[in-house]
Simulated scan of single mutants.
Amino acid sequence: MNASPFDFVSLSALAPPPSQIGVMTVTVVPVRLFSAVFLMLLAWPFAFAASLGRSELVVETETR
């Protein structure tokens, strides 16, 4: 029997095995968490510097 693009695979066949989920939880999750925190801390000084010297009056007139 030939496979066609319309043959569907069950979702359970696409799921990774539990051992792989355990390994990824211990390795990938902390790396993603660390990189998210690092990027937020890296973006904060740029956002702070961009807002220096701005007043409430300037922000209000620009939004109208």
Rank of each mutant, 00 (worst) to 15 (best):
S12H: 13
S19Y: 07
T63S: 06
Q20V: 06
E56N: 05
F46R: 08
F48S: 05
V59G: 02
L52Y: 04
V26M: 08
E56Q: 07
G53A: 03
L41M: 11
P5V: 01
E60H: 09
S35R: 14
T61P: 01
N2G: 08
F38W: 14
V9N: 03
S35V: 15
S4T: 12
V29R: 03
V58G: 11
L14C: 07
V23P: 00
S51R: 15
P18F: 04
A43R: 10
L41F: 10
R64A: 10
P5H: 00
M24C: 10
I21R: 09
P30H: 05
V37G: 11
I21H: 03
V9Q: 07
A15E: 07
L14I: 02
S4N: 04
D7S: 04
A47W: 00
V26C: 07
M40C: 08
V29S: 03
T63G: 02
A47R: 05
P16T: 00
L42S: 06
M40P: 01
V9H: 09
V59E: 13
L33K: 11
F8P: 00
M24S: 11
R32E: 14
G22K: 12
I21S: 06
M24D: 15
P18Y: 03
V29T: 05
T27W: 05
P30V: 01
V26E: 12
P18M: 02
S10C: 03
S10Y: 06
E56H: 03
L11M: 11
P5A: 03
F48Y: 09
T61V: 15
S12P: 00
F8Q: 09
S10K: 05
P18S: 03
A36C: 08
S35K: 11
G22F: 08
T63Q: 08
G53Y: 00
M40G: 06
L11D: 12
V59R: 14
G53T: 01
A15N: 05
P30Y: 04
S35C: 15
A13M: 06
L14M: 13
F48K: 09
A50R: 08
E60I: 13
A3I: 12
A36E: 09
Q20F: 12
F8E: 10
G22T: 11
A47K: 06
A50P: 00
A3K: 12
E62K: 11
L41S: 06
F38C: 07
A36V: 02
W44Q: 01
L14G: 04
V59A: 12
P18N: 06
V31W: 03
G53V: 02
V58L: 10
V29L: 08
P17C: 10
V37K: 14
E62G: 08
A13C: 05
